[in-house]
């Protein structure tokens, strides 16, 4: 009885159905813990957390240089920027916009550098629903390969003040 002192000889090894369940549960826990290393080597979607220390101002300068060098258009004052396949692309998060708009090619791989100029932000790519954390002081590198085309929306999903829900960016894939 759970609020009474147990009998002296309460230690007994599990038996019967209880033993079976503990075995099954342990096996299931084993399967789940193997799945992650397995996917790390054989799956295609992983979060490596590759990151470099960076000053927000330095990162913004890199982003500006990158945007000027690769600009192919403009939308509402935000440049549309097309990096060369396989190259580095920069995406800066700032209250409350994403800079610039990236234009990528399907089935090409890019190193996307994500960082924040102020608070923490959330990179949430819709409608794919891929989510990554964006931190000030951290240059977070995603090695990303778009495999579908269209216009994708970046929603900020880390609270960043009053304009948080208005912080919307775009990635175009052709």
């Amino acid at each position: 009885m759970s609020i009474e002192i147990p009998q002296r000889d309460w230690y007994k090894a599990p038996a019967g159905a209880e033993k079976l369940w503990i075995g099954l549960a342990l096996l299931w826990c084993f399967v789940m813990s193997v799945m992650m290393p397995y996917w790390h080597f054989y799956g295609k979607q992983n979060s490596q957390g590759e990151a470099y220390s960076v000053e927000p101002n330095a990162f913004f300068e890199r982003t500006m240089t990158f945007a000027e060098a690769n600009k192919v258009g403009d939308r509402d004052g935000i440049p549309i920027v097309e990096p060369a396949p396989g190259s580095d692309a920069y995406l800066a998060a700032r209250m409350w916009f994403w800079y610039p708009i990236l234009k990528l090619r399907k089935d090409e791989t890019y190193r996307i550098h994500l960082s924040s100029m102020d608070l923490q932000h959330g990179f949430s790519l819709q409608p794919l629903n891929m989510n990554f954390q964006v931190m000030p002081g951290y240059d977070h590198v995603l090695t990303l390969t778009p495999t579908s085309t269209g216009e994708f929306t970046i929603v900020c999903n880390e609270f960043c003040g009053i304009g948080h829900d208005k912080m919307i960016g775009k990635i175009i894939v052709e």
Binding site: N46, G122, S124, N129, M130, N131, F132, Q133, N157
Partner: peptide, 12 residues
Amino acid sequence: GTQQINIIAHNT
């Protein structure tokens, strides 16, 4: 809380 699956869940 599975490492990779969190990509399609974090902060949603």
